[in-house]
Design a protein around this nucleic acid. Sequence first.
DNA 1: GATTGTTTAGGTGATC
DNA 2: GATCACCTAAACAATC
Length: 492
Amino acid sequence: MQKLYAEPPPSSAPVSMSSAGGSASGGVGVGGGAVPTSINNANPTSNGGSMSPLARSAYTMNSMGLTVGGMSSVSPQAAATFGSSVLDSAAAVASMSGSMGAAAAMNSMGGNCMTPSSMSYASMGSPLGNMGGCMAMSAASMSAAGLGGSYGSMPPGTRDMEPGSPNSLGRRGVDKPTTYRRSYTHAKPPYSYISLITMAIQNNPTRMLTLSEIYQFIMDLFPFYRQNQQRWQNSIRHSLSFNDCFVKIPRTPDKPGKGSFWTLHPDSGNMFENGCYLRRQKRFKDEKKEAIRQLHKSPSHSSLEATSPGKKDHEDSHHMHHHHHTSRLEHHQHHKEAGGGGGVALAGVNVLSAAHSKDAEALAMLHANAELCLGQQPQHVPTHHHHQHHQLQQEELSAMMANRCHPSLISDYHSSMHPLKQEPSGYTPSSHPFSINRLLPTESKADIKMYDMSQYAGYNALSPLTNSHAALGQDSYYQSLGYHAPAGTTSL
DNA sequence: GATTGTTTAGGTGATC
DNA sequence: GATCACCTAAACAATC
């Protein structure tokens, strides 16, 4: 089984983190063995002026988790924003008889990667309420253990400690509960940068974000990232450029500004589905780009690379340096193929050569589509290479059309229809506690729409995610890119 | 000049 | 031990 976290500390020492962040060497986060632990930050209103409305919603929602079934404690805004995510969460918690039940339920999860500490963080800092009952359970359990409490119970000014400060993560105390609370706040989230970027993009109705918007999203959600911005933002940029799953979309003339938009590769939707959200099971590779790489793996290329160690694929090539490996020369060739230049080099060669090399008109249409498709039914007919997958997608499509339910729910449908697809751990792709499907609010758009239309329409204007209700026609958007919409992102 | 994007390099931990 | 996924730093170019 994939080891995702260090074991949680004994209950007597609930916080056991290696220093999250601040380490000069790598491996701080997901892969580094840092164990971001419980964050008690449930009070959105007392986090100072730096917290965006988005974050407030997130925190509000989290507070709901702490109150165990307290739908009344969640703001209408948060409820409207996160729709059924919140409702599901509330329902899940409410269905339990207090924190004991919550704790028991959590224990029943089997502890795949769900240490109380890891779960807790996500429940606290993330707006991704679709963590649902799991997160709420965690919080409830924490409360039962006397560790919970609200973020708001912390004295002002103690929540945004510098990592190096005495109360910060680097010196998390184990002597006083109050110290825990301070420390939790800035624990590094257990998510990889790729996860964070994915969250940000998927959380946006247009599925396109500028770099600065991605930054902002992350900082809004995770106070940890309000510090050392240069460090992690560099990593974000690196991740965007390096990973095939992120595709750059040039701005249109009617949208002047700095930097391009970033979106997810349409086929990258399953990166986290079957695995823990904390770490991808497998790096996404654009098949077409991979094909290009293979194409460029001609003997001449190989020899060229063999004589140019500095130009090998990067993140993995250095392992070859270390371990004298030779099997993955091709891995990052796309960097070269994407062009050495700055802005013109499209990471998503194929995706955006459609939008880029064809003409600006297609590009404009691309952008326009993303804005115009509010509430559209999916129109695309998936065209996938693999027959089985194609069939599955058609099943999904049919089910969606019939039931108007979200693809993520269809995933559950598939799990029941195709039990073999189920994870050995017992988690279905979409039910994994750290599955991105559960994390992101995209799966609840229909519910969101229904919910706030009927209940909280008046709050819509206040919600930073208001337009997420649009669930803008991703289908048209991806079609304009020459792709079919990825499973799990199809609009309703 | 600041921001954005690309690329290279070196590192860690987890998994196979 | 090999491989993989990820993190961090830095240099550099392009763009606003």
